[in-house]
């Protein structure tokens, strides 16, 4: 993956501040097709799924599946699990402390979540800085990485938040069109990032 297409949180906010758009999925997809025209083939995916990149990674999709677009992260994890049998995918309601153990066992982790503020799918590096805040029964990706490091002595080499545009959070088991498109794109995005790294 072209590293310039993965932004850090700080970079992304800076880009917003200066009104420079973060790389859009359209941009990302165009770049991706130029470099990996055959990646969408099932055969290629199946072969890749047996590779180390997939076995050493963890995808955590989280959200409330009764709350419309909040389910987007869960849907991505479910689809990735279906496509890539070697990839460990967890679908959870929220991030809880015991996930630190699973995270400490991999080299790369993807936190996939709905984002009410996003207007496109993005892949953002999670800053590997010590987190010191725990607000409720649920933790943040940064907190979980810190927990993995502090408790088990190991945090993944790379950690990403995959954000999916989310618009509707009313009680529903359906995704909005924006979230539905975002889920499909995020599945491709994570798959491609794993293929390339």
């Amino acid at each position: 993956m072209n590293s310039s297409l993965i932004t850090t949180k700080t970079q992304r906010h800076k880009e917003k501040h200066y009104e420079v758009s973060a790389p859009s999925v359209t941009q990302w997809w165009s770049w991706f097709k130029d470099h990996h025209e055959d990646t969408k083939s099932t055969k290629k995916n199946d072969m890749s799924s047996d590779g180390n990149n997939f076995r050493s990674a963890l995808v955590i999709g989280y959200g409330n599946t009764l709350r419309g677009d909040d389910a987007a992260g869960v849907r991505v994890a479910e689809e990735l699990a279906r496509r890539h049998p070697a990839l460990r995918c967890l679908s959870v309601h929220q991030l809880t402390p015991e996930l630190a153990h699973d995270i400490a066992e991999v080299d790369r982790v993807f936190f996939v979540d709905a984002d009410a503020m996003a207007d496109h799918v993005y892949a953002e590096s999670v800053e590997q800085t010590p987190a010191r805040s725990v607000r409720s029964h649920s933790l943040s990706p940064t907190s979980l990485l810190s927990l993995a490091r502090d408790l088990y002595g190991h945090a993944p080499r790379q950690a990403h938040v995959i954000g999916i545009p989310a618009r509707e959070f009313d009680l529903s088991e359906d995704l909005s069109p924006a979230a539905r498109t975002g889920v499909a794109e995020a599945v491709e995005c994570v798959g491609a990032m794993l293929e390339r790294s």
Binding site: G63, R67, Q94, M117, V161, F169
Partner: peptide, 9 residues
């Protein structure tokens, strides 16, 4: 029973 989408707490 709440949503937790990024940046809402």
């Amino acid at each position: 029973c709440s949503t937790h989408a990024l940046g809402q707490m």
